[in-house]
Design a protein around this nucleic acid. Structure first.
Lengths: 219, 219
DNA sequence: CGACGCCTTGATAAATGTCAAACGTCGTGG
DNA sequence: CCACGACGTTTGACATTTATCAAGGCGTCG
C-alpha cells in the first residue's frame, strides 16, 4: 500500500557546521543543525522524546502506520515550524523529511530546564503546543468533509503556509497528500483535476498549483 | 440535519454554593462551580476565551457547526477533565453540556498570571494542552479508519475514560457519537448492532454497553 | 393512553476505494 | 543524442462502503 520509500536509501542524518538564529526558539537555544535526506527518518514512533525540532529549511511530515499498512500523516512542518514537542515518554508519531531538509535540534530537557526559570520561554513552549492542538483540531475537522472539500481545504492551508503569491510549490507527493487527507491517491488526483477543469486552479506541473479562483475553494 | 436540540429549552447557567477541591487545578484555584442544564451552551464559538473550565460532574462536548448544518464534535470531557484552555482570542469550538453538569470556572487571566510566578502551575497548564493535542491527533487518526473501526475505537476510548469494570454508561446520544466519529447516525447503530450480534458487546440499554470480547474491538 | 424523543432497520443512491493500464518526467548509460 | 527504466501521476472501469430516505420500534413522561 505504501511504496513511497521502496528503493529509497534511508541515510543517517548529517551534522553541519552552519548555524542560524532566525528560529522561534533561537532566542533561548541555538539548536544544532542537522541535514536529513529526503524520506529519511528524523525520529521513530515510540522513541523517547529527546529533542525538540525546528525546520530551518525543507519540509517534514509526521507519520503513523497502522498494522495493516494504512498510513496517516499527522501534519506537515515547514521552515520556522516546530515539531516533536510532546508530553509523555515516547513520540506518538514518527517524523520524516519530505525533501532534503535542515532541522535545528535542541534537547527537550534543556528547554524544560530553562523554562523553569524563564517565564517567557515557558509561555512560548505552551503557545507552540496550543497551536499544534488547534491545528490537530482543524485536521480532524477536515476529515469529516467530502473528498473534494478536503482537497480544497488542503490547498487553502498550503496557500496560507507556503505559497508565494498565488503559486503553491508542493514539496510532498500525491500519496502524502492522500494520507494527510484520509482519502485514496486517485481521489486526490480526481479532485485536483476537477478543480483544474473548473478553472479554480492551474497546474503548471504536478507539484505546482496556481490559484485562479480562491472563492471556488472556500465555499 | 441536526435536530437534537430542537424543542430543548436553552437555559442559562446556575451559580451554586457548593465547592470542591478534587480537581486538577484545585491546588491553585478553587474555581466557581456552575450548573449547566443538558444541551445548554457553556461558551460559544468565537467568543473570547475568558475562563478555563473543569468538569466536576456530568459531561461536556465541544462542537463546531459548518454553514450547511454538518456538525462536528471536537471532543468529550468528563469529570476531572479540563476544557476551554486555548491560545488566541476566541474559542475555536463551542462547548455544551451533554447532560446536566457542574463545571468549575476559573478566569484564564488569573491562571496565566499565577503561572508567571508558579512554575509548577505553568507546567500543569502545558501538560493539559499537550494532552489535548495528543487527543486531537488520536481523533484525527480515528477518522481515517472504516466506520466499524471508528465505533470500535470510540468504545475503547470510553472504556478507558468512563467505564466501571466492563460497563460503559454513555451520556451522549447516538447523534453525538456519529458527529464525533464523522459518520451517519444510522452507521453508528449498524456498527453497534454488528458488534452485539458477534457477541463483542452487549447492550442492556441503548445508553449502556457491556464489553464481552475486547479483542474483537482491538484488531 | 398518546406524544415525543431517540434509536433501529431496510431499501436505495451516491461517494469513494480498488484494480488496472497508460502517461509523463527525469536521470542514467549506451 | 536517444533509449530505457524507475517513479510518480493520471484516468477509466468497476466494487464496496457509507449516506440518505423512509418507516417502524421502544421507552418515558405528561
Amino acid at each position: 500500500m505504501q511504496e513511497q520509500a521502496v528503493g529509497q536509501q534511508i541515510v543517517g542524518p548529517t551534522r553541519t557546521h552552519f548555524t542560524t538564529r532566525s528560529g522561534t526558539l533561537a532566542r533561548w537555544a541555538m539548536g544544532t543543525p542537522m541535514i536529513f535526506r529526503r524520506n529519511s527518518e528524523i525520529y521513530g514512533e515510540a522513541e523517547p522524546v529527546e529533542y525538540v525540532y525546528e525546520v530551518a529549511h525543507g519540509a517534514v511530515r509526521t507519520v503513523k502506520v497502522l498494522s495493516d499498512g494504512r498510513r496517516q500523516i499527522g501534519g506537515f512542518y515547514f521552515a520556522g515550524d516546530i515539531f516533536g514537542l510532546e508530553h509523555g515518554n515516547g513520540h506518538s508519531f514518527s517524523a520524516e523529511a519530505v525533501v532534503d531538509s535542515t532541522v535545528l535540534m535542541t534537547r527537550r530537557s534543556s528547554l524544560i530546564g530553562m523554562a523553569g526559570h524563564d517565564h517567557e520561554l515557558a509561555q512560548q513552549l505552551w503557545i507552540v503546543t496550543a497551536q499544534q492542538a488547534a491545528r490537530a483540531h482543524n485536521h480532524a475537522l477536515m476529515l469529516i468533509k467530502t473528498a473534494q472539500e478536503r482537497v480544497n481545504s488542503f490547498l487553502l492551508e498550503m496557500t496560507e503556509r507556503i505559497a508565494s503569491g498565488d503559486l503553491i510549490k508542493l514539496p510532498m507527493s500525491r500519496q502524502d497528500i492522500a494520507d494527510y487527507l484520509g482519502i485514496a491517491i486517485e481521489t486526490v488526483c480526481r479532485a485536483l483535476t476537477s478543480l483544474e477543469m473548473r478553472s479554480a486552479i492551474a497546474m503548471p506541473s504536478s507539484r505546482a498549483v496556481r490559484l485562479r479562483d480562491r472563492s471556488m475553494l472556500t465555499e
